[in-house]
């Protein structure tokens, strides 16, 4: 038995995990939680390099339980901390099960922080396209939010093309639809966070980008792939 009851590794040094979530901040949050629970002497949170599972991130691994978590969002950390790291009960809904040993990278398919990609979906032929709206429901240089399978999706018409993003600003969960865009920059009216319309990348004060969805147009209708 080593010096720690539980030893937690958060990937902060890989190629994709740090782009899929603010994993440096995950480390801080977990450390603060462990310290607050008075467990600093027997629980260790370490930053880690790549686990060779790129694309399934952000990833967190807990030993000696050998429990791997995939697609961890900041909002999941409380549960992982309280239930598992402190409480000893793994969070089953977030567990990673690649189904095969060894490295398991998804290469080149993803951009941005789409979040969780269950391992069972990896080998699937193509994404599940969901209909959003008619193309003419979003006027040129306009934008509009639509519910798609319980997910609010913002469709932006850049003047040249359609793009799809999360409907709420990552800052304060304000509807981006209420903001403005000029074909190149989208500004949330609430606190002036700005994003590149074409990529969702943050500009200026904005600290995180927008989660994008793959989009296609067919026979005057728009479809998005919510996962993958």
């Amino acid at each position: 038995m080593g010096p720690y009851d539980r030893h937690v590794f958060v990937c902060t040094g890989g190629e994709t995990c740090p782009t899929q979530g603010e994993t440096e901040n995950y480390v801080k949050i977990l450390r603060a939680g462990v310290q607050n629970a008075g467990r600093s002497s027997d629980v260790r949170i370490n930053k880690s390099g790549c686990f060779s599972q790129c694309g399934h991130g952000p990833m967190i691994v807990v030993y000696p339980d050998d429990v791997w978590y995939a697609g961890v969002r900041e909002s999941d950390l409380d549960e992982i901390l309280t239930s598992h790291i402190i409480g000893g009960n793994p969070v089953e809904r977030l567990r990673y099960d690649p189904g095969k040993p060894g490295p398991n990278k998804i290469v080149g398919e993803k951009k941005g922080a789409e979040g969780r990609a269950p391992a069972s979906d990896v080998g699937r032929a193509g994404p599940a396209w969901k209909r959003v709206c008619r193309s003419d429901e979003v006027p040129a240089n306009g934008m509009k939010a639509f519910p798609v399978d319980g997910v609010d999706v913002l469709i932006v018409h850049t003047g040249e093309a359609f793009v799809a993003y999360q409907a709420l600003c990552p800052h304060e969960a304000v509807a981006l639809e209420q903001g403005v865009h000029d074909g190149s920059v989208l500004t949330c009216l609430e606190h002036m966070w700005q994003f590149d319309v074409r990529t969702g990348a943050p500009i200026g004060d904005a600290e995180t980008g927008l989660t994008g969805y793959r989009l296609k147009e067919e026979r005057g209708e728009l479809y998005v792939a919510l996962e993958g």
Binding site: T187, Q194, G204, D205
Partner: peptide, 17 residues
Amino acid sequence: VDASLRLLLREARLPPA
């Protein structure tokens, strides 16, 4: 305020700063 912000961002193209 919201209407003015839209004006200043979209028509006037002022930077948020």
